[in-house]
């Protein structure tokens, strides 16, 4: 994927469409009192790091923040560790850039019933007025650590790689009564 909301969301007119996003993930964590510097470094690269609880999309990145002074950057798959290495070189002494491309799996949920389906396992208020596009949150879903980000195209779900299959099976089972569109990807 380039950015999840740029992908066509096949089947979104049915109840729920679940797809897997192939993406690199880099965590940027600012050292003490260095967040402003890190934001400046990112800004020079054309990325406005979002405030906590938000997600932003640029031409080649999705950036979200669910922990203070930390950001997750999603980018198109490249050589292993390359994205993190690039960022670490840019912000040495300011932040830690840790490659989590293998550690985090990204799923994308689209369709009119996506939020209804998620309410079967997610304790957050996912109503469109409470969680509009641009918002992100870390929580638990189906007993698994999960990060949710609302994009114009649907909901992006990040989960630890080891529980991704469990979460995906749960999502498929939960979404089925709403009408499950065939997977658009993978």
């Amino acid at each position: 994927m380039s950015a999840p909301d740029a992908r066509p969301t096949a089947g979104a007119t049915d109840g729920v469409a679940i797809s897997l996003c192939r993406t690199d993930v880099t965590e940027l964590a600012a050292l003490r009192n260095r967040a402003a510097e890190l934001e400046a470094i990112a800004a020079r690269r054309g990325l406005r790091l979002p405030p906590n609880g938000h997600v932003v999309t640029t031409a080649d990145l999705v950036a979200l923040a669910v922990r203070p002074q930390r950001w997750l950057l999603l980018s198109a798959p490249a050589a292993p560790g390359a994205a993190a290495a690039t960022w670490q070189a840019l912000c040495a002494d300011t932040a830690a850039a840790v490659d989590l491309s293998s550690g985090i799996t990204a799923l994308h949920l689209a369709g009119p019933s996506a939020r209804d389906a998620l309410a079967r396992g997610c304790r957050l208020d996912l109503a469109a007025e409470s969680f509009p596009p641009g918002r992100a949150a870390a929580t638990m879903m189906a007993q698994v650590s999960t990060i949710l980000a609302a994009l114009p195209s649907g909901i992006l779900i990040l989960t630890p790689a080891s529980t991704a299959r469990h979460l995906r099976e749960w999502l498929v089972a939960t979404a089925r009564p709403f009408g499950l569109a065939p997977p658009a990807d993978d």
Binding site: P68, R123, M140
Partner: peptide, 10 residues
């Protein structure tokens, strides 16, 4: 203060 109102189990 960072995430908003959340259930105790979190």
């Amino acid at each position: 203060p960072w995430c908003g109102e959340r259930d105790e189990v979190e």
